[in-house]
Amino acid sequence: MDRLAEREAAPEAGHRGAPAPAPLAELLQLGGPCALGDSVDVLWNPVLPEQVASLHRGTVRLWSLSHAAAASSASESGAAPSPREEGSFGCGRWDPHHAHALALACESDLLTLDTRSMKSAVAVADAHEQPVRGLDYNPNKPNTLLSSGDDYHVKVWDLRKPLTPVLSLLAHAHWVTSATYNRFHDQLLLSCGTDSQVKLWRAAAISSAPPSLDYEEADPSEVEADGIVRPYTDHEQSVFGAVWSAADAWIFASLSLDGKVVVNHVPPSEKYKILL
Rank of each mutant, 00 (worst) to 15 (best):
F184M: 06
T115I: 03
P162M: 01
A80D: 13
Q51D: 08
L167K: 01
N264A: 14
N140T: 11
T180M: 00
G87E: 07
V132Y: 04
L189F: 01
G227I: 04
E236M: 06
V239H: 09
Y232C: 04
L55T: 07
R61N: 12
D234K: 08
S117F: 14
A79S: 13
A69N: 12
T233I: 02
A205G: 02
V261D: 05
Q130K: 11
G241T: 04
S207A: 03
A18L: 14
D114M: 02
A74H: 06
D41S: 10
P131W: 05
V122M: 05
D248C: 01
Q197N: 09
L255P: 12
P33W: 11
C34W: 09
S191G: 00
L110A: 04
L30I: 10
S245A: 08
P267V: 12
A253C: 09
G227D: 06
W63T: 01
K199L: 03
H153I: 02
P46G: 07
A127V: 02
G58S: 07
H98N: 10
A80I: 07
S147Q: 05
M1R: 14
G58M: 08
F184H: 07
E6C: 09
K155F: 08
L36M: 14
S108T: 09
A179G: 00
I228W: 04
L65F: 08
L27I: 03
R93P: 10
L145R: 12
L27S: 15
L146G: 06
E85Y: 15
L163Q: 15
L65Y: 12
K271D: 12
K155S: 08
Y181V: 01
V42D: 05
Q130M: 13
G31P: 06
R61A: 15
P142I: 11
Q29C: 13
H172V: 04
D195I: 06
H15I: 11
G259S: 02
A171M: 01
Q197D: 05
N140C: 15
G32E: 06
K273G: 08
R133T: 10
H172Q: 00
D38S: 09
V124I: 09
G31W: 09
A9R: 10
N138R: 13
N45R: 01
C34Q: 15
G241V: 05
R16M: 13
E6H: 13
A209C: 11
V42M: 05
A35Q: 14
F89G: 12
V166P: 00
R133P: 03
